[in-house]
């Protein structure tokens, strides 16, 4: 357990399935379906299903036996003629919503899904209103330059022209 804990604590390191024995790409040649269309759908679905024993790794990426079982399950359902949604529903019914990499939009995830767009609208809208309001206010007319300043300006401009 110590080694596992020290790993979890490992500072700011990009560790994913490090708690697993061997990190490697998952899909094995024996699992690949003969029908390339079906296999492509299987791969797409796999990237959105989480390996339950890993940290934040999809079953498409994980080498864990459980991930393998899930991959085979997904392919079995597809071969049996399930649609993508049916496969997902089937897996969720068995393993719970935790298995989905993209949480479903529902009561308990409203805040999660809407937070960023709402924040953008509120902040962006606020800035827009502020900008429109400010538009009405004309900035004070700048003071005329006095003779000394005019001379300075002319000198600077002529220097700039030389550059």
């Amino acid at each position: 357990m110590t080694s596992l804990r020290s790993l979890v604590f490992l500072p700011f390191v990009f560790l994913l399935c490090i708690t697993l024995a061997a990190p490697a790409v998952a899909v094995n040649p024996s699992e690949i379906l003969d029908d390339p269309k079906l296999e492509e759908r299987a791969r797409d679905l796999s990237t959105n299903l989480r390996c339950l024993v890993c940290q934040n790794q999809s079953i498409d990426d994980s080498d864990a036996p459980l991930a393998r079982d899930l991959r085979v399950l997904v392919r079995e359902r597809l071969v049996a003629g399930d649609s993508n949604d049916e496969v997902i529903d089937f897996v969720v019914a068995r393993y719970g919503e935790f298995v989905l990499m993209t949480p479903r939009f529902a009561g308990h995830t409203v805040v999660l899904w809407l937070a960023a767009p709402v924040l953008l609208l509120v902040a962006g809208g606020g800035l827009l209103i502020l900008a429109l309001r400010r538009r009405g206010v004309k900035p004070a007319k700048p003071k005329e330059l006095d003779a000394d300043e005019k001379q300075k300006l002319a000198r600077l401009l002529s220097e700039e022209a030389k550059v």
């Binding site: 989480r50 934040n56 989905l100 990499m101 949480p103 308990h108 805040v111 960023a116 924040l119």
Partner: peptide, 30 residues
């Protein structure tokens, strides 16, 4: 807002589990 989106996505599963006990994953597609 992008920073807030990442923050919310990272903390939301923890908060949800602490409050309602529901476990969800927020992964790369999100």
């Amino acid at each position: 807002v992008a920073c807030a989106a990442v923050l919310i996505g990272t903390l939301y599963p923890l908060a949800l589990e602490a409050v309602t006990g529901q476990k969800i994953s927020v992964g790369p597609p999100f």
